[in-house]
Protein backbone atom coordinates (compact mmCIF):
# COMPACT_ATOMS: atom_id res chain seq x y z
CA UNK A 1 0.00 0.00 0.00
CA UNK A 2 2.99 2.28 0.39
CA UNK A 3 3.97 1.88 -3.25
CA UNK A 4 3.76 4.85 -5.60
CA UNK A 5 0.55 3.76 -7.29
CA UNK A 6 -2.12 2.94 -4.79
CA UNK A 7 -5.06 0.95 -6.11
CA UNK A 8 -8.08 3.00 -5.03
CA UNK A 9 -10.17 -0.15 -4.62
CA UNK A 10 -7.71 -2.02 -2.34
CA UNK A 11 -8.61 -2.09 1.33
CA UNK A 12 -11.63 -2.01 3.61
CA UNK A 13 -14.68 0.02 2.65
CA UNK A 14 -15.24 3.00 4.98
CA UNK A 15 -18.27 4.44 3.22
CA UNK A 16 -21.98 3.89 3.87
CA UNK A 17 -23.28 0.37 4.56
CA UNK A 18 -26.60 -1.42 4.39
CA UNK A 19 -28.02 -4.32 6.43
CA UNK A 20 -27.42 -7.79 5.02
CA UNK A 21 -28.00 -11.37 6.13
CA UNK A 22 -25.56 -13.78 4.51
CA UNK A 23 -27.00 -16.93 6.07
CA UNK A 24 -30.57 -16.01 5.12
CA UNK A 25 -29.48 -15.25 1.57
CA UNK A 26 -27.78 -18.65 1.29
CA UNK A 27 -30.76 -20.57 2.69
CA UNK A 28 -33.27 -18.75 0.49
CA UNK A 29 -31.10 -19.38 -2.58
CA UNK A 30 -30.66 -23.05 -1.65
CA UNK A 31 -34.40 -23.58 -1.30
CA UNK A 32 -35.16 -21.68 -4.51
CA UNK A 33 -32.55 -23.53 -6.59
CA UNK A 34 -33.57 -26.92 -5.13
CA UNK A 35 -37.21 -26.27 -6.03
CA UNK A 36 -36.28 -25.04 -9.50
CA UNK A 37 -34.21 -28.20 -10.05
CA UNK A 38 -37.10 -30.44 -8.98
CA UNK A 39 -39.52 -28.58 -11.27
CA UNK A 40 -37.14 -28.84 -14.25
CA UNK A 41 -36.53 -32.54 -13.57
CA UNK A 42 -40.27 -33.25 -13.31
CA UNK A 43 -41.01 -31.23 -16.43
CA UNK A 44 -38.24 -32.40 -18.71
CA UNK A 45 -36.71 -35.61 -17.26
CA UNK A 46 -33.25 -36.40 -18.74
CA UNK A 47 -31.94 -38.04 -21.91
CA UNK A 48 -30.75 -41.63 -21.96
CA UNK A 49 -30.23 -42.95 -25.48
CA UNK A 50 -29.27 -46.60 -25.02
CA UNK A 51 -25.72 -47.55 -25.86
CA UNK A 52 -24.79 -49.46 -29.00
CA UNK A 53 -23.51 -53.02 -28.59
CA UNK A 54 -21.16 -54.77 -30.99
CA UNK A 55 -23.92 -57.36 -31.30
CA UNK A 56 -26.38 -54.68 -32.44
CA UNK A 57 -23.83 -53.25 -34.89
CA UNK A 58 -23.13 -56.69 -36.39
CA UNK A 59 -26.83 -57.44 -36.75
CA UNK A 60 -28.06 -54.07 -38.02
CA UNK A 61 -25.12 -53.19 -40.27
CA UNK A 62 -23.28 -56.44 -41.11
CA UNK A 63 -21.67 -55.00 -44.25
CA UNK A 64 -20.19 -52.10 -42.29
CA UNK A 65 -19.01 -54.55 -39.63
CA UNK A 66 -17.28 -56.73 -42.26
CA UNK A 67 -15.65 -53.71 -43.93
CA UNK A 68 -14.40 -52.44 -40.55
CA UNK A 69 -13.01 -55.87 -39.64
CA UNK A 70 -11.12 -56.07 -42.93
CA UNK A 71 -9.76 -52.54 -42.46
CA UNK A 72 -8.34 -53.60 -39.08
CA UNK A 73 -6.48 -56.46 -40.82
CA UNK A 74 -5.39 -54.18 -43.68
CA UNK A 75 -4.12 -51.58 -41.23
CA UNK A 76 -6.26 -48.84 -42.77
CA UNK A 77 -8.81 -48.29 -39.98
CA UNK A 78 -8.65 -45.20 -37.76
CA UNK A 79 -7.28 -47.23 -34.83
CA UNK A 80 -4.82 -49.20 -36.97
CA UNK A 81 -3.29 -46.00 -38.36
CA UNK A 82 -3.72 -43.93 -35.20
CA UNK A 83 -0.27 -43.64 -33.65
CA UNK A 84 0.25 -42.62 -30.01
CA UNK A 85 -1.00 -43.39 -27.42
CA UNK A 86 -2.21 -46.67 -29.01
CA UNK A 87 0.48 -47.74 -31.47
CA UNK A 88 3.43 -46.61 -33.62
CA UNK A 89 1.67 -46.58 -36.98
CA UNK A 90 1.86 -42.77 -37.24
CA UNK A 91 3.29 -39.86 -35.27
CA UNK A 92 -0.06 -38.27 -34.52
CA UNK A 93 -0.93 -34.58 -34.56
CA UNK A 94 1.35 -31.66 -33.80
CA UNK A 95 1.12 -27.99 -32.88
CA UNK A 96 3.85 -26.43 -35.04
CA UNK A 97 7.11 -27.90 -33.75
CA UNK A 98 5.40 -29.43 -30.69
CA UNK A 99 4.83 -33.17 -31.20
CA UNK A 100 2.98 -33.57 -27.90
CA UNK A 101 1.11 -36.69 -29.01
CA UNK A 102 4.32 -38.43 -30.06
CA UNK A 103 6.27 -37.29 -27.02
CA UNK A 104 3.65 -38.67 -24.62
CA UNK A 105 4.39 -42.08 -26.13
CA UNK A 106 2.49 -45.32 -26.66
CA UNK A 107 1.05 -45.92 -23.20
CA UNK A 108 -2.23 -47.68 -24.02
CA UNK A 109 -1.00 -50.33 -26.49
CA UNK A 110 -3.64 -51.44 -29.00
CA UNK A 111 -2.87 -53.69 -31.97
CA UNK A 112 -6.23 -53.60 -33.79
CA UNK A 113 -5.65 -56.61 -36.09
CA UNK A 114 -4.59 -58.81 -33.17
CA UNK A 115 -6.82 -57.37 -30.44
CA UNK A 116 -10.06 -56.83 -32.37
CA UNK A 117 -9.91 -59.70 -34.89
CA UNK A 118 -7.34 -62.47 -34.45
CA UNK A 119 -7.49 -62.98 -30.67
CA UNK A 120 -11.31 -63.17 -30.53
CA UNK A 121 -11.32 -65.58 -33.51
CA UNK A 122 -8.88 -67.86 -31.67
CA UNK A 123 -11.47 -68.35 -28.94
CA UNK A 124 -13.87 -69.92 -31.47
CA UNK A 125 -12.21 -73.28 -30.96
CA UNK A 126 -15.28 -75.23 -32.03
CA UNK A 127 -15.22 -73.68 -35.51
CA UNK A 128 -12.60 -75.62 -37.48
CA UNK A 129 -12.95 -73.49 -40.63
CA UNK A 130 -12.27 -70.27 -38.72
CA UNK A 131 -9.31 -71.84 -36.90
CA UNK A 132 -7.86 -73.03 -40.22
CA UNK A 133 -8.28 -69.53 -41.70
CA UNK A 134 -6.51 -67.94 -38.73
CA UNK A 135 -3.66 -70.48 -38.96
CA UNK A 136 -3.23 -69.84 -42.68
CA UNK A 137 -3.27 -66.07 -42.14
CA UNK A 138 -0.72 -66.20 -39.34
CA UNK A 139 1.57 -68.51 -41.26
CA UNK A 140 1.72 -66.09 -44.20
CA UNK A 141 4.35 -63.34 -44.44
CA UNK A 142 3.20 -59.82 -43.52
CA UNK A 143 3.28 -58.67 -47.15
CA UNK A 144 0.95 -61.50 -48.14
CA UNK A 145 -1.43 -60.69 -45.24
CA UNK A 146 -1.56 -57.04 -46.33
CA UNK A 147 -2.18 -58.02 -49.93
CA UNK A 148 -5.09 -60.31 -49.04
CA UNK A 149 -6.72 -57.80 -46.69
CA UNK A 150 -6.09 -54.84 -49.02
CA UNK A 151 -7.51 -56.66 -52.04
CA UNK A 152 -10.60 -57.77 -50.11
CA UNK A 153 -11.15 -54.25 -48.74
CA UNK A 154 -10.98 -52.89 -52.30
CA UNK A 155 -13.36 -55.53 -53.58
CA UNK A 156 -15.84 -54.84 -50.74
CA UNK A 157 -15.81 -51.12 -51.47
CA UNK A 158 -16.71 -51.87 -55.11
CA UNK A 159 -19.44 -54.40 -54.32
CA UNK A 160 -23.06 -53.12 -54.27
CA UNK A 161 -23.68 -51.71 -50.74
CA UNK A 162 -20.45 -53.39 -49.65
CA UNK A 163 -22.24 -56.71 -49.59
CA UNK A 164 -19.69 -59.55 -49.12
CA UNK A 165 -22.01 -61.90 -51.02
CA UNK A 166 -21.60 -59.76 -54.16
CA UNK A 167 -17.83 -59.32 -54.09
CA UNK A 168 -15.99 -60.04 -57.35
CA UNK A 169 -13.87 -63.19 -57.35
CA UNK A 170 -10.22 -62.71 -56.39
CA UNK A 171 -7.34 -63.88 -54.19
CA UNK A 172 -8.33 -62.79 -50.71
CA UNK A 173 -6.80 -65.78 -48.91
CA UNK A 174 -8.39 -66.54 -45.52
CA UNK A 175 -9.56 -62.94 -44.94
CA UNK A 176 -13.24 -63.44 -45.99
CA UNK A 177 -13.56 -66.47 -43.70
CA UNK A 178 -12.01 -64.55 -40.82
CA UNK A 179 -14.29 -61.53 -41.34
CA UNK A 180 -17.45 -63.62 -41.50
CA UNK A 181 -16.22 -65.60 -38.47
CA UNK A 182 -15.91 -62.39 -36.45
CA UNK A 183 -19.31 -61.23 -37.70
CA UNK A 184 -20.87 -64.44 -36.37
CA UNK A 185 -19.07 -64.04 -33.05
CA UNK A 186 -20.30 -60.44 -32.74
CA UNK A 187 -23.85 -61.32 -33.76
CA UNK A 188 -23.95 -63.90 -30.97
CA UNK A 189 -23.08 -61.15 -28.45
CA UNK A 190 -19.87 -62.86 -27.37
CA UNK A 191 -17.50 -60.22 -28.80
CA UNK A 192 -18.87 -57.47 -26.54
CA UNK A 193 -17.35 -58.92 -23.40
CA UNK A 194 -14.27 -60.35 -25.13
CA UNK A 195 -12.98 -56.96 -26.23
CA UNK A 196 -13.17 -55.36 -22.80
CA UNK A 197 -9.71 -55.09 -21.38
CA UNK A 198 -10.04 -57.31 -18.37
CA UNK A 199 -7.06 -56.08 -16.43
CA UNK A 200 -7.84 -58.39 -13.52
CA UNK A 201 -9.02 -61.24 -15.70
CA UNK A 202 -12.60 -61.04 -14.41
CA UNK A 203 -13.68 -57.54 -13.39
CA UNK A 204 -14.09 -55.08 -16.23
CA UNK A 205 -13.80 -51.30 -16.20
CA UNK A 206 -11.75 -50.32 -19.26
CA UNK A 207 -13.66 -50.07 -22.55
CA UNK A 208 -10.81 -48.72 -24.68
CA UNK A 209 -10.76 -51.62 -27.15
CA UNK A 210 -14.49 -52.13 -27.83
CA UNK A 211 -14.96 -48.35 -28.10
CA UNK A 212 -12.08 -47.97 -30.56
CA UNK A 213 -13.41 -50.85 -32.66
CA UNK A 214 -16.96 -49.48 -32.58
CA UNK A 215 -15.74 -46.01 -33.56
CA UNK A 216 -13.76 -47.45 -36.50
CA UNK A 217 -17.03 -48.44 -38.15
CA UNK A 218 -19.58 -46.23 -39.82
CA UNK A 219 -22.58 -47.43 -37.79
CA UNK A 220 -21.94 -45.35 -34.64
CA UNK A 221 -21.10 -42.26 -36.68
CA UNK A 222 -24.28 -42.62 -38.75
CA UNK A 223 -26.39 -42.74 -35.59
CA UNK A 224 -24.56 -39.67 -34.25
CA UNK A 225 -24.99 -37.82 -37.54
CA UNK A 226 -28.74 -38.42 -37.37
CA UNK A 227 -28.76 -36.88 -33.87
CA UNK A 228 -26.72 -33.83 -34.97
CA UNK A 229 -23.76 -34.91 -32.87
CA UNK A 230 -20.97 -34.94 -35.48
CA UNK A 231 -18.00 -32.65 -35.17
CA UNK A 232 -18.94 -30.70 -38.30
CA UNK A 233 -22.48 -30.22 -36.95
CA UNK A 234 -21.34 -28.39 -33.81
CA UNK A 235 -21.90 -31.78 -32.19
CA UNK A 236 -19.82 -31.27 -29.03
CA UNK A 237 -22.43 -28.83 -27.74
CA UNK A 238 -25.39 -31.02 -28.57
CA UNK A 239 -27.41 -33.63 -26.75
CA UNK A 240 -29.67 -36.35 -28.10
CA UNK A 241 -33.31 -35.38 -28.64
CA UNK A 242 -34.34 -31.85 -27.67
CA UNK A 243 -32.31 -31.60 -24.47
CA UNK A 244 -29.79 -28.84 -23.90
CA UNK A 245 -26.24 -30.16 -24.10
CA UNK A 246 -23.04 -28.40 -23.11
CA UNK A 247 -23.64 -24.87 -24.48
CA UNK A 248 -20.55 -23.71 -22.54
CA UNK A 249 -18.48 -25.54 -25.18
CA UNK A 250 -19.64 -23.14 -27.91
CA UNK A 251 -16.25 -21.55 -28.51
CA UNK A 252 -14.39 -24.88 -28.58
CA UNK A 253 -17.00 -26.22 -31.02
CA UNK A 254 -16.90 -23.05 -33.12
CA UNK A 255 -13.23 -23.42 -34.15
CA UNK A 256 -13.87 -26.82 -35.76
CA UNK A 257 -16.34 -25.17 -38.17
CA UNK A 258 -13.99 -22.54 -39.62
CA UNK A 259 -10.73 -22.46 -41.56
CA UNK A 260 -7.94 -23.28 -41.07
CA UNK A 261 -9.17 -25.80 -38.51
CA UNK A 262 -12.04 -27.26 -40.55
CA UNK A 263 -9.65 -28.38 -43.28
CA UNK A 264 -6.53 -29.17 -41.22
CA UNK A 265 -5.33 -32.68 -40.45
CA UNK A 266 -4.01 -31.18 -37.21
CA UNK A 267 -7.36 -29.66 -36.26
CA UNK A 268 -7.58 -31.33 -32.84
CA UNK A 269 -4.09 -30.29 -31.79
CA UNK A 270 -4.56 -26.74 -33.09
CA UNK A 271 -8.00 -26.22 -31.54
CA UNK A 272 -6.87 -27.65 -28.21
CA UNK A 273 -3.74 -25.50 -28.26
CA UNK A 274 -5.81 -22.42 -29.06
CA UNK A 275 -8.40 -23.20 -26.36
CA UNK A 276 -5.66 -23.68 -23.78
CA UNK A 277 -4.28 -20.26 -24.68
CA UNK A 278 -7.74 -18.66 -24.54
CA UNK A 279 -8.50 -20.38 -21.23
CA UNK A 280 -5.25 -19.01 -19.84
CA UNK A 281 -6.29 -15.59 -21.14
CA UNK A 282 -9.65 -15.89 -19.31
CA UNK A 283 -7.80 -16.66 -16.08
CA UNK A 284 -5.41 -13.74 -16.67
CA UNK A 285 -8.01 -11.15 -17.75
CA UNK A 286 -7.07 -8.79 -14.87
CA UNK A 287 -3.54 -8.48 -16.31
CA UNK A 288 -4.25 -8.18 -20.03
CA UNK A 289 -4.05 -4.54 -21.19
CA UNK A 290 -7.03 -3.59 -23.31
CA UNK A 291 -9.21 -6.48 -22.19
CA UNK A 292 -9.11 -5.39 -18.55
CA UNK A 293 -10.18 -1.88 -19.62
CA UNK A 294 -13.30 -3.01 -21.53
CA UNK A 295 -15.58 -2.73 -18.45
CA UNK A 296 -14.68 0.97 -18.02
CA UNK A 297 -15.49 1.71 -21.65
CA UNK A 298 -18.87 0.00 -21.60
CA UNK A 299 -21.57 1.64 -19.47
CA UNK A 300 -22.91 -1.62 -17.98
CA UNK A 301 -21.28 -0.91 -14.59
CA UNK A 302 -23.32 2.30 -14.38
CA UNK A 303 -26.43 0.12 -14.41
CA UNK A 304 -25.10 -2.12 -11.61
CA UNK A 305 -24.27 0.80 -9.33
CA UNK A 306 -26.86 3.28 -10.60
CA UNK A 307 -28.50 3.79 -7.20
CA UNK A 308 -25.13 4.58 -5.60
CA UNK A 309 -24.14 6.93 -8.41
CA UNK A 310 -27.57 8.58 -8.27
CA UNK A 311 -27.08 9.37 -4.60
CA UNK A 312 -23.40 10.21 -4.59
CA UNK A 313 -22.78 11.48 -8.10
CA UNK A 314 -21.59 9.62 -11.17
CA UNK A 315 -17.91 9.38 -12.13
CA UNK A 316 -16.60 11.04 -15.28
CA UNK A 317 -16.67 9.04 -18.49
Amino acid sequence: MTAGRVDPAAGDWRGPRRPYDLVKEFIVALVAVSLLTVVLALLFSSPNEKGVTLEQWAQKAPNDFIATTVSELAGTSTSASYGPPYNHSSTGQQIGPLHLQKWAGVRIPVDPARDFVISPLRTMTADAAVQAAVRRYEAAPAAQQDQWAGAYADALSKAPEGDPAQVAAGDYGPVPAMASGLLGLAQSGALDSQLVNAGTGFYQADYTKPLLFLADGGYLADLAQAQHLSGNQWGMMNETGNFPGQPWLWLYTFWYQVRPFSTSTNADALVWGLMMLLSLALVLVPFIPGVRSIPRRLPLYRLVWRSYYREHGAPRR
Binding site: A9, W13, G15, R296, W305, Y308, H312, G313, P315, R316
Partner: peptide, 17 residues
Amino acid sequence: PPIGVDLDGRVEGAAAK
Protein backbone atom coordinates in the same frame (compact mmCIF):
# COMPACT_ATOMS: atom_id res chain seq x y z
CA PRO B 1 -16.28 -0.84 -4.83
CA PRO B 2 -17.96 0.80 -7.83
CA ILE B 3 -15.73 2.08 -10.61
CA GLY B 4 -14.60 5.61 -9.83
CA VAL B 5 -15.41 5.43 -6.10
CA ASP B 6 -12.76 5.55 -3.36
CA LEU B 7 -12.88 3.59 -0.12
CA ASP B 8 -14.47 6.49 1.74
CA GLY B 9 -17.35 6.37 -0.70
CA ARG B 10 -16.37 9.50 -2.61
CA VAL B 11 -16.96 9.55 -6.35
CA GLU B 12 -14.05 10.89 -8.34
CA GLY B 13 -14.87 13.97 -10.42
CA ALA B 14 -18.50 13.97 -9.36
CA ALA B 15 -20.23 17.22 -8.48
CA ALA B 16 -19.54 17.83 -4.78
CA LYS B 17 -22.11 15.61 -3.18
